[in-house]
């Protein structure tokens, strides 16, 4: 018995191991900072918002919880600011959270269900007084940004993923990612009649999509991650037809003026690169525009004309907290901040 007591005493001395992290102050008003959406991990309900105060470089990783007294939910996929509101699309929780753009306080949580079936919203884009939200159940939901009501559902392809606006039309990638045979099309939606105008065949498993200032739409088909490689394609928004396919690998695209930032991570080796593409000459300017040697898992790239900076997200190993890396517009590294789990979207505040 005495041996047990001695041992228990020793164990009690060495047993405590907790890494505590301090959260930065919660701002009353959002200014001079970055609001970052951390996607979180499937079925962990740990999607979150981080606030980076650029004045004192403090970071608050529980912004949403402190503002609302509840969690953001499971797998936040997209975030956009439009008018005086912030819209956050939470995929597995099947919600769209609407926050006040300057205070971050909750305005409304929109439940995205079709009867008892979760629609699983994925991405959001805005046009006129409407928000267009892709839903994995095969629809684009149209949200009135004034009343915050879903006004209609537009049926398109299977498992619609991302979307962009060009030439007064909405372009949506139909990934078909939950099917044995994936989709290969981009749907074109008329934002006036709220109907699908046409489907454009691009390549297997289309995902990331963006438009340039010339009205061209660029889309990436991710292939099947093995025998069919990923590719980038160009769509002419005047004719709504695919006019060009580029013979290089790509994972995601982000517009930067009349250029595109194209990131690619090789599925086998895990090596990555972020290239600069000239949308006028339709050619790669440089393959290694941004040095990714210190970025373990590029999880998104974003350029802000407001700050004239490039933001590169690092998901680390997906199960540990990630980073946002700040680069000059010429690709020069500035600094990075450690945030929540799988950071992927950012809003810039002056």
């Amino acid at each position: 018995m005495r041996y047990s007591i001695i041992l228990l005493g020793l164990l009690a001395l060495i047993a405590c191991k907790k890494k505590k992290t301090e959260d930065g102050p919660l701002p009353d008003e959002l200014k001079n900072g970055l609001l970052v959406l951390n996607e979180g991990l499937f079925q962990h309900n740990n999607s979150s918002l981080s606030w980076v105060n650029l004045a004192d470089e403090s970071i608050n990783n529980t912004f949403f919880e402190q503002k609302t007294n509840r969690g953001l939910g499971d797998t936040g996929n997209d975030m956009g600011r439009y008018g005086g509101k912030i819209y956050i699309v939470v995929n597995v929780s099947s919600t769209v959270e609407v926050l006040h753009a300057t205070t971050g306080k909750s305005i409304q949580q929109i439940s995205m269900f079709n009867g008892s079936t979760a629609k699983q919203p994925r991405s959001i884009a805005f046009h006129g007084n409407k928000a267009f939200i892709t839903c994995f159940d095969g629809y684009v939901d149209v949200l009135d940004t004034t009343t915050l009501n879903i006004v209609t559902r537009i049926p398109i392809g299977s498992n619609p993923d991302q979307l962009t606006v060009a030439n007064n039309k909405i372009y949506v990638t139909n990934s078909g990612g939950l099917n044995a045979v994936m989709d290969s099309t981009v749907s074109v939606i008329d934002p006036s009649s709220l109907t699908e105008l046409s489907k454009i065949t691009v390549g297997l498993n289309p995902g990331s999509i963006a438009s340039d200032s010339n009205g061209d739409v660029y889309v990436i088909s991710r292939g099947n991650y093995s025998s069919i490689p990923s590719r980038m394609h160009r769509i002419d928004s005047q004719t709504d037809s695919k006019v060009q396919s580029f013979n290089f690998n790509a994972s995601s695209i982000s517009p930067m003026g009349n250029q595109l930032l194209i990131s690619y991570t090789a599925t086998g080796s895990g090596t990555s690169e972020i290239a600069l593409f000239d949308a006028t000459t339709e050619s790669i300017v440089t393959n290694q525009f941004i040095n990714t040697s210190s970025i373990l898992t590029p999880f998104g790239v974003s350029y802000s004309s407001t700050s004239n900076l490039i933001y590169v997200f690092d998901a680390n190993n997906y199960t540990t907290t990630g980073y946002i890396n700040l680069f000059q517009a010429n690709g020069q590294f500035i600094k990075r901040y450690q945030l929540g789990l799988n950071p992927s979207k950012v809003l810039i505040y002056d």
């Binding site: 079925q43 309900n45 509840r70 969690g71 939910g73 499971d74 939470v90 597995v92 929780s93 099947s94 919600t95 949580q109 439940s111 269900f113 008892s116 079936t117 979760a118």
Partner: peptide, 10 residues
């Protein structure tokens, strides 16, 4: 029943 998913018990 799986894990509890906030706002989605379907």
């Amino acid at each position: 029943p799986g894990a509890v998913v906030f706002y989605n018990e379907t």
